[in-house]
Design a protein around this nucleic acid. Structure first.
Lengths: 200, 200
DNA sequence: GTCTATAGCGCGATAGAC
DNA sequence: GTCTATCGCGCTATAGAC
């Protein structure tokens, strides 16, 4: 036990917020945010829907709590990567960290990539927009023209693809393939830039 | 006017099914299937929500009608591609056709890729599952092991990425970049297969 | 053939029992 | 502090006016 809580807190802790967050995320992944009712979350834990609105005063509060850890982790990664001066080292660090983030937070990441209702939610929209803009800027070299936008969205979507449907492969092997996918598309973008400047 | 309808049908035709389908798709793209009510669709066309359930007897019927043209087009493409004997020619034809499909049907394609509620809908789920399985099989060479699954999902997701957020680029230039992305990832997969067989 | 009116249901949220 | 009971709302779907 590495936390500082008392023995009497153990049972309360296990049956508390994190269980609700876990159940909610499971259901958001499967049915989407709008398709998941507080009733469904309560049923899964054997409590009433009122028990859910007790722990989280609204459904808005719940979605904020579910995404917070992933957004926080991604933000720290971006802060660290953006502090790196050399472009190629910065890009490599961002790709490594983003792949790690996707694997560690794959449930949240795959949910948000497939649920327009969640991304469009007032609580989620603006921070998500900002984070994706920053990761795009880190992964793509050169000016942010139309071609960079296209390849940038291709990279982030390509990295998300393999985490959508669980594959029977170790996290380490998955990481290796995701990095290969990222580097392959970064090279592809650079080649596309060379092609377009040559034809100018 | 290339259709055979009478002049008296013109006004009825313009204000009929296709207008409902177009408005519904617009709203599905923006708010998701569960986030779009019949009320919202009626409001956009200046009619009551009952007018929507008159043309389509249920919301299930509506989603079926919205996706039908895109699914039909994709199915014809797959039938044609699968009839090609030589693997590399089959793969090239599938990639070309799939990119054309994504550009022509970009609203439906980007909606379905971002709305778990729509993909999970009974009317959509099974045909969509079958179509994505077939396109994956066409685009990826060799045995369908874990690595093939990973790169297959990376390719289809990467191709979908650039159509999600409209970019100010012509369809022709977009097509060129999507083909480059597809070929780049197909080459990446082949290199990954060589790496993994060498290390066995 | 197209609409209004409304039924019937499930939702998120809350007041108050315990 | 945690639950039960319930409120008010918006949803899909339908019956029936026009």
């Amino acid at each position: 036990m590495t936390t500082g809580m008392h023995d009497s807190d153990v049972e309360a802790e296990v049956s508390s917020r994190s269980r609700f967050l876990d159940a909610a995320l499971d259901l958001f992944v499967e049915h989407g945010y709008n398709g998941t009712s507080l009733q469904m979350i309560g049923d899964r834990l054997g409590v009433s829907k009122a028990a859910v609105t007790y722990h989280f005063k609204s459904k808005d509060d719940l979605i904020r709590a579910v995404i917070a850890p992933a957004f926080h982790e991604l933000q720290e990664l971006l802060d660290g990567a953006e502090a790196i001066k050399r472009e190629s080292a910065r890009r490599t660090h961002a790709l490594d960290g983003y792949v790690d983030y996707l694997i560690r937070q794959r449930r949240v990441a795959s949910w948000l990539s497939r649920d327009v209702a969640a991304i469009g939610h007032p609580v989620v929209y603006e921070p998500a927009q900002q984070l994706t803009g920053r990761i795009d800027a880190l992964l793509i070299a050169g000016p942010h023209d139309e071609i960079a936008q296209i390849w940038g969205s291709a990279i982030t979507q390509a990295l998300t693809g393999p985490i959508l449907n669980p594959v029977s492969i170790s996290d380490g092997d998955l990481r290796e393939q995701l990095l290969a996918i990222g580097h392959q598309l970064i090279r592809g973008h650079q080649a596309a830039v060379r092609r377009s400047t040559k034809s100018d």
